[in-house]
């Protein structure tokens, strides 16, 4: 229904704007919103897409072809969403164990999903030169949104929130290296299959690839090795 859709979109933007401005009301609103979960998922997926566009240089440097390129962006957005969900899960678990927070995971998911709103801008990281500092700004901004959102939903003070975030991060890292390894491997497999080649994500290594092929190929000149 067009009218409903407009209404939802309007709601969506209002919530995103509120979260970007770090208004507690926005986080309270999504907690109780009828379509809260869906909205949170939308924010996360779109933030993931935005981020993968902002960092599309990696795909370019890996010489990914156009169709695979677009698919890779989509896959990256989905993987981003999954990883965000697991990260929230570990933060939620930590806060529950550490501070006895008794809030359902769904609520936490909604609120923390909305806290990803600042990352909707992360496509701007692709701007030459200015994009790099912008990336830092956006990261700090989304952390602030996280702190605000999490304290709204759990009523913890900001230090407890930061403590949960930090420990949650540690747990998340440990999980990635232990029980999460098959999932990570699956993620890599999916992104590599979609990209059509094993993706090198280390920028320094990529830079070396770019430079070494010149010295090798300079005799027959013209263009990169393909």
């Amino acid at each position: 229904m067009p009218a409903e859709m407009t209404y939802s979109l309007d709601q969506f933007w209002r919530l995103v704007q509120g979260a970007n401005a770090l208004h507690p009301e926005a986080f309270q609103a999504i907690e109780t919103h009828a379509n809260g979960t869906l909205l949170a998922i939308a924010v996360i997926v779109l933030a993931g897409l935005s981020q993968s566009i902002g960092q599309a240089i990696v795909l370019f440097l890996n010489q990914v072809k156009p169709i695979r390129f677009v698919l890779s962006l989509g896959i990256a957005a989905l993987l981003f969403a999954f990883s965000a969900a697991f990260w929230m899960l570990s933060v939620w678990g930590v806060s529950h164990l550490l501070y006895g927070v008794d809030v359902s995971f769904l609520k936490v998911f909604r609120v923390l999903g909305l806290a990803y709103a600042p990352l909707l801008w992360s496509f701007l990281v692709a701007i030459p030169y200015l994009g790099v500092p912008l990336n830092v700004v956006l990261s700090v901004w989304s952390l602030l949104a996280f702190v605000r959102g999490f304290s709204v939903v759990t009523e913890l003070d900001r230090w407890q929130v930061l403590g949960s975030a930090l420990l949650g991060w540690v747990v998340f890292q440990i999980m990635q290296r232990t029980v999460g390894r098959p999932a990570i491997a699956l993620g890599h497999w999916v992104s590599n299959s979609v990209a059509g080649a094993p993706l090198i994500t280390n920028l320094r290594q990529l830079e070396q690839t770019v430079q070494s092929s010149f010295t090798k190929g300079s005799d027959n000149s013209s263009g990169p090795s393909q």
Partner: peptide, 14 residues
């Protein structure tokens, strides 16, 4: 600004 790197990146990606 967002589009400005595309020429060189597209060139590299072939």
């Amino acid at each position: 600004a967002l589009l400005s790197p595309l020429e060189s990146l597209g060139w590299w990606a072939g």
